[in-house]
Design a protein around this nucleic acid. Structure first.
Length: 500
RNA sequence: GGCGCCGUAGCCAAGUGGUAAGGCAGAGGUCUGCAAAACCUCCAUCACCGGUUCGACUCCGGUCGGCGCCUCCA
């Protein structure tokens, strides 16, 4: 059936065809670097990572841009409180964002433009809008976009079908405005002393000030599209559902009014929220958890990715310890099978037919699931089916060929949900561990020494088992367990120890 | 008040107009010195009430419950 996505613009699933064959331009709204991004934010970034990976797996060359918002009210306020220029204030959070991104194995975008690096482009955009008469300067010197002069306004959020209740969100007071129409949005905010204090003001023909929130995405997307020779319409624009209105609606208005094109992006994808006990994770609700918090708690990125992808991106997902534990266990099982499969691979042709069928099913089902609006939960179900069937074949002693294993690897690479590193080490007979005599009962603290220690005990267990001294063997297992190592006797007579 | 989403087993979660994927947990079993791992078996009638239909969990209407957006929140 081919690749298809749910397009917020049409509220329906549509076949996806990039404007330039073989290439995809994709812009995703990134974080406002005023603080550490929480995993709610990262749920969206993870969904976008999956999108990116699948497009690439489908053979498309993706140009992915993610902006970093480094000037906004919160940043100015926080920077002011610390007496720092905004650039200096945001820098550590930008770095932290990249660290968290890497921890979660999110593939780096091709560009991470920062708003303050594109002031000139934004000014040009505002000038263009003023020239076209769709923008005007208010009495406060700020520049606003006049939505009544842009008839298509509201198509994304279906504004024509709703009546806005001014200030209903309670997040902004309605009387702060100096606009012709309450729904007009600001393109350029006239500079205030607080802005000057933190170097958040720039000169412009229409007055000194700083960009409004929406402006950066339009300016940077258009600038980077032009640089890549990809026209002035994005193939895909993605973000969280909360950005549909007003952010993306306003981006469309200012971009299309400027370019004259009918679209700013042909496909709009929006990811649902990550909830905590039913309500969205948000700084203002005080219920946030950051990737670094989870990392500190020993949560693995593979488990986290599995958890996120086991729920469709357009469904709300509640984060709980139980769900996290379940994902950890699932990730472990996938990793266990992956290791077993790779060890059993043989490099020969003419593999048993059962494996060929197995591989075909993995590739076909995963592909069909992800093609269908990124149905990762279904793709993961396929993976688990493959684990069960594959283990059964391996139990029968049938080895897979590399071609079949490659199909499994390809499917896994898109989701990337295996546990990271920390595999066990296997000790076989005559490991020479006894060379230095019996290891001490207490483990060394350094990781490497601790591993040697565990290996030594594993060898000792092997020896004890060899003389059928099961009491001693059990004692060793308990001792290792107490030190945080799991023990497993393999069928081939080896002992495997693994950090828990 | 407006717009929209959701309500599937103990927990998480796909899905289809024809009688419910997958994961975790749990129970029993095979294997094992014992474990572990792996495999096998078992574990739902899809919030409620109407309607349409030969047939609905899937379509329509309503009720109840949860959630989101409504000007700078992924």
């Amino acid at each position: 059936m081919g690749l298809r996505f749910y397009n917020t613009l049409s509220r329906s699933i549509e076949p996806f065809t990039p404007a330039v064959p073989g290439r995809v331009s994709m812009y995703t709204c990134g974080p406002t670097i005023w603080n550490y991004a929480h995993i709610g934010n990262f749920r969206t970034f993870l969904f976008e990572d999956l999108l990116r990976r699948w497009l690439e797996a489908r053979g498309l060359r993706v140009f992915h841009v993610m902006n970093l918002t480094d000037v906004d009210d919160r940043i100015i306020k926080e920077a002011g409180a610390r007496g720092l220029p905004i650039r200096e204030f945001t820098e550590p959070f930008a770095r932290a964002f990249f660290e968290d991104r890497d921890f979660l194995r999110i593939r780096p975008a091709h560009a991470y433009p920062r708003a303050t690096d594109f002031i000139a482009e934004m000014i040009r955009l505002v000038e263009g809008l003023l020239a076209k008469g769709v923008a005007y300067q208010g009495d406060d010197r700020s520049v606003y976009f006049a939505i009544q002069r842009f008839p298509a306004y509201g198509q994304l959020s279906q504004l024509d079908r709703r009546s806005l209740k001014a200030g209903a969100s309670g997040r902004v007071s309605t009387d702060e405005y100096d606009k012709e129409n309450a729904q007009d949005f600001v393109l350029w905010k006239a500079a205030r002393p607080e802005d000057e204090a933190v170097a958040a003001a720039w000169d412009a023909p229409f007055g000194r000030g700083r960009p409004g929130w929406h402006l950066e995405c339009s300016a940077m997307a258009l600038a980077l599209l032009a640089r890549e020779g990809l026209g002035e319409v994005l193939d895909i624009h993605a973000g969280g559902v909360d950005l549909i209105f007003p952010h993306h609606e306003d981006e469309i208005a200012q971009s299309c009014a400027f370019t004259g094109a009918s679209h700013f992006a042909r496909v709009w994808l929006h990811g649902e929220f990550l909830n905590v006990r039913g309500t969205k994770m948000s700084k203002r609700f005080g219920n946030i958890t950051t990737p670094r918090d989870l990392k500190a708690d020993g949560v693995d990125a593979g488990a986290l990715r599995l958890l996120m992808f086991q729920t469709h991106y357009r469904q709300k997902l509640d984060l709980t310890d139980e769900a996290l534990a379940a994902a950890r266990e699932g990730s472990r099982r996938l990793g266990e099978f992956d290791g077993r499969l790779r060890r059993a691979t043989r490099r020969t042709a003419g593999t048993p037919n059962a494996w060929a069928e197995w591989a075909g099913r993995v590739a076909g089902d995963v592909s069909e699931a992800l093609d269908d609006d990124l149905n990762a939960p279904r793709a993961i179900a396929t993976l688990f089916d493959a684990v069960r069937d594959g283990n059964r074949l391996l139990d029968q002693g049938l080895p897979p060929g590399d071609g079949e294993v490659a199909e499994w690897v390809r499917a896994l690479e898109v989701l990337d949900v295996l546990p990271s590193g920390g595999g066990g080490t296997t000790v076989s007979h005559g490991a020479g561990a006894a060379a230095e005599g019996a290891p001490s009962d207490t483990p060394p603290t350094e990781p490497e020494a601790s591993e040697n220690w565990a290996r030594a005990w594993a060898a000792a267990r092997l020896t004890a088992k060899g003389r059928r001294d099961f009491k001693e063997a059990d004692r060793i297992r308990d001792l290792l367990k107490a030190a945080g190592w799991s023990v497993r006797d393999n069928k081939d007579g080896t002992v495997e120890v693994r950090r828990v």
